[in-house]
Simulated assay, not measured.
Amino acid sequence: MTSRPLRALTARLSRAMPLLIGLTLLIGFAAAAPARAVECSRQEHDGNQYAVCSVDPAAENLRLFLHDTTGTPIGHFATLDAALEAQGRDLVFAMNAGMYHADRDPVGHYVENGTEIMRVIPTPGPGNFGLLPNGILCIEKTSARVFETRDYLERRPDCRHATQSGPMLVIDGKLHPRFLPDSTSRYIRNGVGTTADGSRAVFAISDNPVTFHEFARFFRDGLGLPQALFFDGNVSRLYAPQLGRDDMGRRMGPIVAVTEAAE
């Protein structure tokens, strides 16, 4: 005859079995699920709100897009998504990536798939782009780094993709010298920062209008990045399904994106 304590233990195990099986399946699924290609989040810094997406360029297909196969400017995330779908690829993340002329050709240096489309512009000029020092996002085979333009010209890194914009936000851990703490010029702004070794590229866009000084401090103090580059204001757009973002609006010039093979 089975003892009363043993029968009670057996009954408890029987009731717990469905939960144990469910936990086992959940743990197994979590272990088998692939890591996200891009990690996006919403962050706050000094009372301002930002959408932030971090990319490992050694693990993900991070690259630039400007024209389609016919030479027509892509201009919109939806156009890029459709073109990728025809190639059996998915758009995972995208952001406008540098200033451009009315025909959407880049204002500054631009390299796509190893081909230089626009030379480096090292001289000062009007507008934000010419507010030196400006800089260049360089995407190499397994890394991505922001270079101040003069440093880029000295080092001549081997960029598969590159886009020039300006001004620099953070230069070797210091804010751009022309940024004013008490500035009243506020816009929606977007840009990119990179780690010193190029192992991580972090793209950010403000959810509310911010000054250059606030935006730069977010990259330096909020994200802890030693180099950061301003992409644009007003035109700033983000495609980040994790955050429910698929921004519409003005047509863009260069677009930086992460793509992956469609399942």
Rank of each mutant, 00 (worst) to 15 (best):
E44H: 09
L19A: 13
V38P: 09
A201D: 02
T72M: 10
L64V: 09
A196F: 12
G130A: 10
R237C: 04
G108L: 06
Q164M: 03
A11N: 10
K141L: 03
A31P: 01
A240E: 13
V256D: 06
T149D: 02
T2P: 15
L64A: 11
F231N: 13
L91E: 12
A59P: 01
F129W: 03
L175D: 03
H45R: 08
R245C: 03
H67N: 13
L64N: 10
R178T: 06
A83W: 07
T259C: 03
L9M: 12
N190Q: 06
S185G: 03
I21A: 15
P254C: 02
L64H: 11
I117R: 05
Y100W: 12
L64G: 12
I136C: 04
D68W: 04
G108Q: 04
T69G: 02
I27Q: 06
G71Y: 00
E39P: 00
G98A: 03
T24M: 15
T2A: 15
P57E: 04
L91F: 03
L6T: 14
L20T: 09
S236F: 05
A37P: 00
F218T: 00
S236M: 05
A59S: 12
T195Q: 13
Y50G: 06
D172Q: 10
A31S: 13
G135D: 06
E263C: 08
A58I: 04
D90W: 15
Y110L: 15
P241Q: 10
H176Y: 11
R251N: 14
P209G: 09
T2L: 15
N208M: 04
R12K: 15
R150T: 07
C40K: 08
L131K: 15
A240L: 12
M17P: 01
R160G: 14
V170T: 11
V38I: 01
F65S: 11
T79I: 14
G198Y: 12
R251M: 04
T259D: 12
N113I: 10
C159H: 01
E260P: 01
L243P: 15
L80E: 05
A228V: 14
L225K: 11
I205S: 02
R156N: 10
L66K: 10
L180P: 01
D105M: 06
V52K: 08
I21P: 00
E39N: 09
A201V: 09
G135A: 07
S54M: 08
S143R: 15
Q43V: 04
A102Y: 12
P241F: 15
P167Q: 12
A16T: 09
D182W: 11
V55I: 15
T142I: 01
G127V: 10
I74E: 02
V146S: 06
R4F: 05
F219N: 02
M17R: 11
L91Y: 05
A33I: 06
E260G: 13
F93H: 06
L9D: 12
F147P: 00
E116H: 13
